[in-house]
Computed example of a mutant assay.
Amino acid sequence: MAPSRRTLARELESIADFSDPSPDLEQYLTPPEIAAHLCHLAGLQGDLERPVADLGTGTGMLAVAASLAGAQRVVGVDVDPDALAVARDNAAQVGGDVDWIVGDVTRPPLSPDADVTVVSNPPFGAQRGNRHADREFLETARTIASVSYTIHNEGSQEFVESYAADEGGEVTHAFRAPFPIERRFEFHTEARETLEAEVFRIEWR
């Protein structure tokens, strides 16, 4: 039996953060509350009954959450092998059965048109050179997923809905959630900042 959303969030609180986060990759720890909400919703929608791919898995938060929430097969993909080492340790510590793969999410080592559920917390595009980075994750999701769940910066709803509609998809669920960020890079001026993230479920045809 899958854990409740509250229980899942509590289990995910022990997920370790990046040991040496990269500003260029916008490596931030996905909040346990968001991961639990997203994966609990995926379970209610029956989306964890198919294989799950976590694109840009980072610390493995979403991949581990999907596994704990009931997904039978989960793959976590990230371009950073150091991040995957953290993710692997987190899965061993917290639980969850996940296969970890080093790979570029824009060229994922997964078959096109595969029947998978994608979960992802893409870069928000805050760094120079990373603008529209979340679009690349949606483009990959469109090619490999039946359904995707992605976390975006505040104000992304019009873009996400427009992109999905143009590609034959449909946003079926959307919710907002606080995304706290601790000071970790030189350009951060506050000890702690809370963004208002937006999460979208898209069905792809």
Results as ranks from 00 to 15, higher is better:
P32L: 09
D24P: 01
E33Y: 06
R10N: 12
R6K: 14
A2M: 11
D17L: 08
L12K: 04
D17C: 06
P31H: 01
D20W: 13
S22R: 01
E13P: 04
R6M: 12
T30N: 01
P23S: 03
Q27F: 00
R10D: 13
E33I: 04
P3E: 05
D24Y: 12
P31F: 07
A16Q: 14
R6A: 15
E33L: 10
I15S: 02
L25A: 06
P31T: 07
R10W: 10
L12D: 05
A2R: 15
A16F: 02
R6T: 13
S19Q: 13
A2I: 10
P32G: 08
P32F: 10
E33M: 08
S14N: 10
Y28I: 04
D24R: 15
D17W: 11
E33A: 15
A2D: 10
R5I: 05
F18R: 00
D20I: 11
E26D: 06
D20E: 14
Y28T: 07
T30Q: 01
E13Q: 14
Q27A: 05
E13Y: 03
Q27G: 03
P3H: 03
R6H: 12
F18S: 01
R6S: 13
I15H: 06
E26L: 00
L29C: 00
A2N: 12
F18N: 04
I34V: 14
R10F: 08
L25F: 07
P21A: 01
P31S: 03
I34R: 09
Y28K: 08
R6D: 15
E13M: 12
E26T: 05
R10C: 00
A16M: 09
P31Q: 03
D17P: 05
L12C: 09
I34K: 04
D24F: 12
L29A: 10
Q27D: 08
A16L: 11
